[in-house]
Computed example of a mutant assay.
Amino acid sequence: MNIIIFWYFDRVRAAFEYKSKSNAADLKIELQTQYFDVLTEHQRKTDALWHDMKKHISLMKSLLNDGHQDITSEYIHKLETEMSDKIKIIRTEYPVLSALLTEQKQRAKKADIPFDIHVRLGSELKIEPVDLCVILGNLFDNALDACSLLPPEANKNISTSIGQRNNAVAIVFENTYMPTTKPRIRSGKHGLGLKNVRQAISKYNGQMVISEENNIFKASIVFP
């Protein structure tokens, strides 16, 4: 399961380097097809998990009836750990965007960084999902790098909100950071990443405002 998903996520990253609109459209179709395959496999794994859950519940009942509360508690803890390690699929109206957000959620979890995602998009979107991936992908990479530079005891958090009202789309992306690490974050590939974000936004006459306050980097993007 993990091999299939991460192979697919590698294909999503390729969308960031598309050369033309036609190439992006072809890639989007291919990614959507593969994403549906991932969802099918994920559903199969979920069905298998619930099938096994019946056996787990039966075993725990037997342990409790025999007075083994400590063993039952340990067994429940192991089940919770196993279930929390399962990949959670982020679902939106757009499979390419769903795949990207799912990958980002998994990467943040692996880095032990909370990542809050709120998406409300309609079925009609004037922005190509691949362009949304360029924007969110670069902002997330910068955010993950910024959080990784924070000391272990620091508050680490990444969040994104994507909303739509009629044809207008708004994106708010936030992450914690330390001002002393900012020069490292903005150099090299990070500067190029923000440049790619601005280019994608300009295609739709959108605007981006960046603010930095109380150790929080915030990018507010509006597409009219």
Rank of each mutant, 00 (worst) to 15 (best):
A24L: 03
A25N: 09
L31F: 10
L31D: 04
Q32P: 00
T33M: 02
T33W: 06
F36K: 08
D37T: 12
V38N: 02
T40R: 15
E41N: 09
E41G: 00
E41W: 08
H42D: 14
Q43D: 12
Q43H: 06
R44S: 13
K45G: 07
A48N: 00
L49Q: 06
W50R: 00
W50D: 01
H51Q: 08
K54C: 06
K55V: 04
K55N: 12
K55P: 00
H56M: 00
S58N: 15
M60A: 13
K61E: 10
K61T: 10
S62Q: 15
N65E: 06
G67I: 10
H68M: 12
Q69R: 09
S73N: 07
S73D: 05
E74T: 04
E74K: 10
Y75K: 03
I76L: 15
I76T: 10
H77C: 02
L79D: 07
T81N: 07
T81L: 12
E82T: 11
E82P: 01
E82I: 14
M83R: 09
M83I: 15
D85F: 02
K86I: 08
I87H: 04
K88C: 05
I89T: 12
I90R: 10
I90H: 13
T92K: 09
E93N: 15
E93K: 12
E93D: 13
E93C: 04
V96Q: 03
V96W: 01
V96P: 00
L97W: 01
A99H: 12
E103M: 15
Q104S: 02
Q104W: 05
Q106C: 05
K110H: 05
A111R: 09
F115D: 06
I117M: 07
I117N: 05
V119G: 06
R120N: 15
R120C: 11
G122W: 07
G122C: 07
S123D: 11
K126F: 04
E128Y: 01
E128D: 14
L132H: 00
L132Y: 05
I135N: 03
N138G: 02
N138S: 10
D141F: 07
D141W: 08
A143G: 06
D145I: 11
A146C: 03
C147G: 03
C147N: 15
C147D: 11
L150S: 08
L150D: 11
P151G: 06
E153D: 11
K156P: 03
K156C: 08
N157T: 11
I158M: 03
I158Q: 02
I158V: 08
S159D: 01
S161F: 03
I162L: 15
I162W: 03
R165S: 15
N166R: 14
N166C: 04
N166D: 14
